[in-house]
Measured scan of single mutants.
Amino acid sequence: QVTPQEKEAIERLKALGFPEGLVIQAYFACEKNENLAANFLLQQN
């Protein structure tokens, strides 16, 4: 279960064009650090 703040962060990451499953994995792998997760996702392409 995610908090409203976490859900907002996940939605912002999804808005970058990444699928939800990948976003969630990256977000939690980066210890819920939205900026770190965004950098991680962008570097995967």
Results as ranks from 00 to 15, higher is better:
Gln25Trp: 05
Gln1Thr: 11
Leu41Gln: 00
Lys7His: 10
Tyr27Lys: 01
Glu20Trp: 02
Phe28Pro: 04
Gly21Thr: 15
Ala29Pro: 00
Ala29Glu: 10
Pro4Gln: 14
Glu11Thr: 12
Asn35Trp: 05
Asn33Gly: 01
Ala37Gly: 01
Glu8Thr: 10
Leu41Met: 08
Asn39Arg: 11
Asn35Pro: 12
Val2Gln: 08
Phe40Trp: 14
Leu36Cys: 11
Ala29Leu: 04
Gln5Glu: 12
Gln25Asp: 10
Cys30Gln: 07
Glu8Trp: 04
Pro19Arg: 07
Phe40Met: 13
Gln43Gly: 13
Lys7Trp: 10
Glu11Met: 12
Tyr27Phe: 06
Asn35His: 12
Tyr27Gln: 01
Cys30Tyr: 15
Leu22Arg: 12
Asn33Ser: 10
Ala29Lys: 10
Phe18Ala: 10
Glu8Tyr: 07
Gln5Thr: 11
Gln43Lys: 15
Gln44Val: 04
Arg12Cys: 02
Leu22Trp: 08
Leu16Ser: 05
Lys7Asp: 06
Gln43Pro: 03
Lys7Cys: 08
Pro4Phe: 12
Asn33Arg: 08
Asn45Ser: 08
Ala9Cys: 04
Leu36Lys: 14
Val23Asn: 01
Gln25Gly: 07
Leu36Ser: 14
Asn45Met: 00
Thr3Ile: 11
Leu36Asp: 13
Phe28Asp: 13
Leu36Trp: 08
Ala29Cys: 06
Glu31Met: 06
Ala26Tyr: 13
Leu36Arg: 14
Asn35Ala: 13
Leu13Asp: 02
Gln1Tyr: 03
Ala29Thr: 05
Glu31Ile: 00
Tyr27Ile: 02
Gln44Gly: 09
Glu8Cys: 09
Lys32Phe: 03
Phe28Asn: 15
Pro19Phe: 07
Tyr27Gly: 02
Gln25Met: 07
Phe28Gln: 14
Phe28Met: 15
Glu11Cys: 07
Gly21Lys: 15
Glu11His: 09
Arg12Leu: 02
Leu36Val: 10
Pro19Trp: 01
Pro4Arg: 10
Tyr27Asn: 02
Pro19Val: 05
Phe40Tyr: 11
Glu6Tyr: 10
Glu8His: 12
Ala29Gly: 08
Pro4Gly: 10
Phe18Met: 14
Glu8Arg: 09
Phe28Arg: 12
Lys32His: 09
Thr3Leu: 12
Leu42Gly: 12
Val2Cys: 03
Phe40Leu: 09
Gln44Arg: 09
Arg12Thr: 03
Leu22Pro: 15
Ile24Leu: 13
Glu6Thr: 07
Lys7Val: 13
Gln5Lys: 14
Glu20Gln: 06
Thr3Arg: 06
Glu34Lys: 02
Ala38His: 14
Phe18Ile: 07
Phe28Leu: 13
Leu41Ile: 10
Arg12Gly: 03
Ala29Gln: 10
Asn39Gln: 14
Ala29Phe: 02
Gln25Lys: 02
Asn33Tyr: 01
Glu6Arg: 04
Tyr27Ala: 01
Gln43His: 02
Ile24Lys: 14
Leu42Pro: 02
Ala37Lys: 00
Glu34Val: 05
Ile10Asp: 00
Leu42Asn: 12
Leu42Glu: 15
Glu34Cys: 03
Ala37Trp: 00
Gly21Val: 11
Glu34Leu: 02
Glu34Ser: 04
Cys30Lys: 08
Glu6Gln: 12
Glu20Ser: 08
Asn39Leu: 06
Thr3Pro: 08
Phe28Thr: 13
Asn39Ala: 10
Arg12Gln: 04
Lys7Ser: 11
Gln43Ser: 11
Glu6Phe: 04
Lys32Arg: 09
Val2Tyr: 11
Val2Met: 15
Asn35Ile: 13
Glu31Thr: 04
Phe40Val: 08
Ala9Tyr: 00
Phe18Trp: 14
Asn33Phe: 00
Val2Asp: 07
Pro19Asp: 14
Gly21His: 03
Gln5Ile: 10
Lys32Ser: 06
Glu34Thr: 04
Tyr27Ser: 01
Ala37Ile: 02
Arg12Glu: 02
Glu6Pro: 03
Gln5Leu: 09
Phe18Gly: 03
Ala29Trp: 03
Asn45Arg: 13
Glu20Met: 09
Leu13Val: 03
Leu42Asp: 12
Gln1Cys: 02
Lys7Ile: 07
Val2Ser: 10
Lys7Arg: 14
Glu8Ala: 11
Gly21Trp: 06
Pro19Thr: 11
Gln44Glu: 11
Arg12Pro: 01
Gln5Pro: 11
Ala9Gly: 05
Asn35Asp: 15
Ala38Ser: 12
Gln25Val: 03
Phe40Pro: 00
Glu6Ile: 07
Leu13Asn: 02
Val2Arg: 09
Asn33Pro: 00
Gly21Asp: 15
Leu42Trp: 10
Glu20Ala: 03
Phe40Asp: 08
Ala9Ser: 10
Thr3Asp: 15
Leu13Pro: 01
Cys30His: 11
Glu20Leu: 05
Glu6Gly: 08
Phe28Glu: 15
Leu42Tyr: 10
Gln5Ala: 13
Glu20Gly: 05
Lys32Gly: 07
Leu13Phe: 01
Ala9Arg: 05
Leu41His: 02
Leu13Met: 06
Leu13Ala: 01
Tyr27Asp: 04
Arg12Lys: 10
Gln1Asn: 03
Arg12His: 05
Ala37His: 00
Gln1Val: 04
Gly21Ile: 07
Phe40Ala: 13
Pro4Tyr: 12
Ala9Lys: 12
Cys30Phe: 08
Gln5Cys: 06
Ala26Leu: 02
Ala9Glu: 04
Val23Ile: 06
Leu41Pro: 01
Leu41Val: 02
Phe18Ser: 05
Glu6Asp: 03
Ile10Phe: 08
Pro4Lys: 13
Thr3Val: 10
Leu41Ala: 01
Phe40Glu: 09
Leu22Tyr: 07
Gln43Glu: 11
Val23Lys: 02
Glu11Ala: 13
Val23Ser: 12
Tyr27Val: 03
Phe40Ser: 10
Cys30Pro: 01
Gly21Pro: 15
Ile24Cys: 10
Ile24Phe: 11
Glu34Ala: 04
Ile10Lys: 01
Gln44Pro: 08
Thr3His: 09
Asn33Glu: 08
Phe18Glu: 04
Leu13Glu: 02
Gln43Leu: 06
Lys7Gly: 12
Leu13Ser: 00
Ile10Met: 11
Ala9Asp: 07
Ala29Met: 15
Phe28Lys: 11
Glu20Thr: 07
Pro19Ala: 10
Glu31Ala: 06
Leu41Asp: 02
Leu36Pro: 01
Val2Leu: 10
Gln44Thr: 08
Tyr27Arg: 01
Glu34Asp: 05
Leu41Phe: 01
Lys32Met: 05
Glu31Gly: 06
Phe28Gly: 13
Thr3Gly: 07
Ala38Gln: 14
Asn39Pro: 03
Val23Ala: 13
Leu42Ser: 13
Ala37Leu: 00
Ile24Trp: 08
Ala26Ser: 09
Lys32Val: 00
Gly21Cys: 07
Cys30Ala: 08
Leu42Val: 08
Val23Pro: 02
Gln5Tyr: 09
Gln5Arg: 12
Glu11Arg: 05
Ile10Asn: 01
Ala37Asn: 00
Asn35Met: 06
Pro19Gly: 11
Ala29Arg: 08
Leu42Arg: 15
Ala26Lys: 05
Asn45Glu: 06
Leu22Met: 11
Asn33Trp: 00
Tyr27Pro: 03
Glu11Tyr: 05
Leu41Arg: 00
Ile24Tyr: 14
Pro4Trp: 01
Leu36Glu: 15
Gln43Thr: 08
Gln25His: 07
Gln1Arg: 06
Leu36Gln: 14
Val23Cys: 11
Leu22Ala: 14
Asn39Phe: 02
Ile10Gln: 02
Glu20Asp: 08
Ala9Gln: 09
Tyr27Leu: 06
Asn39Cys: 05
Asn35Leu: 06
Ile10Val: 09
Gly21Gln: 12
Gln43Trp: 03
Glu11Lys: 07
Ile24Val: 11
Glu20His: 12
Leu22Glu: 15
Leu36Met: 13
Gln1Phe: 07
Glu31Phe: 04
Gln5Met: 07
Cys30Glu: 04
Leu41Ser: 01
Ala9Ile: 14
Phe28Cys: 10
Ala9Pro: 02
Val23Gln: 01
Lys32Thr: 03
Glu31Val: 03
Val2Trp: 01
Asn33Asp: 13
Ile24His: 14
Asn33Met: 06
Gln44His: 11
Val23Arg: 00
Asn39Asp: 07
Glu34Phe: 04
Ile24Ala: 11
Gln1Ser: 07
Leu13Thr: 01
Gly21Phe: 04
Asn33Cys: 06
Glu34Asn: 00
Ala26Cys: 09
Lys32Asn: 06
Pro4Met: 14
Asn33Leu: 02
Leu41Glu: 01
Pro19Lys: 07
Glu6Met: 14
